[in-house]
Design a protein around this nucleic acid. Sequence first.
DNA 1: TTCCATTCTGGAACAGCATTCCAAACGTGT
DNA 2: ACACGTTTGGAATGCTGTTCCAGAATGGAA
Lengths: 233, 233
Amino acid sequence: MGKKEGTSQRREESLSRERIIEASIELLDSLGEAGLTFRALSERLATGPGAIYWHIASKRDLLIAACDAVVARTVDGSLREAGAAPEATLRALALGMFDTMAARPWVGSALIQAPGQLPMVRIFEGIGQQVCALGVPPEDQWATASALLHYVLGVGGQHAANTQLARTHGLDRSGLLEGVSSVWSRLEPADYPFARSVAAQLPLHDDRVDFLTGIDLILGGIRASRPGGPGLE
Amino acid sequence: MGKKEGTSQRREESLSRERIIEASIELLDSLGEAGLTFRALSERLATGPGAIYWHIASKRDLLIAACDAVVARTVDGSLREAGAAPEATLRALALGMFDTMAARPWVGSALIQAPGQLPMVRIFEGIGQQVCALGVPPEDQWATASALLHYVLGVGGQHAANTQLARTHGLDRSGLLEGVSSVWSRLEPADYPFARSVAAQLPLHDDRVDFLTGIDLILGGIRASRPGGPGLE
DNA sequence: TTCCATTCTGGAACAGCATTCCAAACGTGT
DNA sequence: ACACGTTTGGAATGCTGTTCCAGAATGGAA
């Protein structure tokens, strides 16, 4: 009566949760977030939508599972190649997630839609362990790790939105940024002095460097608020 | 041949962009993000979808416009009631956005989907002006303001996702958090020590306090990296 | 006033989506 | 060979954003 007793059921080519998730990732990578539909998935797997629903609860479930597969690889990889220093490990973990979300914008978008789910917990766990190692007092650990996580999610979500916007408009990244830049530089000078002043550097900036700057800002804040006092390390 | 010459065209009850946006906000507030459909909007405005499309380019346009109306009020209000101290103003602005996104989760979700658009620029401008006032050197202003913005967006997006998740499951906030907490506390102890250790305080924590802690962490990092040196304020 | 071009309306129609349903095919233990 | 639970895949459902278009309302010109 068990649902999964034997190991190799059916023929080799049969459907399985793993095969569906793998195909979903390929679809998401090649066509973007909007490319993952049950129709396209059915076609690629040479089956019907009904068959997929036997293995997958919903599209939400599918997206989270695909996201988790990618995030798990990233987190494990980042932690393995990092040394023992907590700050360096934290930076490696954050940069690993940034690179993953830059290469696969749908990951950032999926992460936001899965609060408390497995992929997010993986990242949160990795961050939290390093936060503890940094010597943050227990009562501040939750808020500190949450802040880092939310920052990473914010950048990833923004990157995903930018990429999808560019795709729907048929532009590449630089074309999109130039468009935004020119709009910003035409804003009302009295109301938007800051946006106008930074509009010029918008198409030139390096997302990755800016991301790391933000991480270092938060790390600096953690260091400054340590019980030992706000002195140098 | 101009499109908008006279001021009061048509009868008083006629459709207008403003009236459509207002109705959209009411719909979003009462039914959540999924509640905004052109059918529901048509019904509420006693018209057809085609009439709405005469004033609105797309659903995306509509969502951004509704978001902008709310964000504009929040930003203006936060800046007006704040004093002159840049840090306090920054905190007031961030808290104002948090409260708005907590009361209307769809705002956080909409903000993420509108990179470079008016609502985001309003927040970015407010943040950027205070960053300048804090004495951040020009070459760091962009990255610093971006970090703060991304953090705010990350928290808002997460809040939106949580609320929508609770709504689809027919739970309230505490019910959702208790569910997540119990899942986390049943994770593999060897792999998830941190998540397990903080699972207990998950249903009890105060989002607003945690949000402000994150803001202060970034502000602390900004203070620590000022040219004047990492001394006390 | 009468006419007309323009602006605006609203209902029908369309393509695409996630999801559900179900009859048939398949494998396996008897 | 039989029967039974598992798995399949195609049709059907109800929803979505968007387009289309016949025609009503409106303001200026004749």
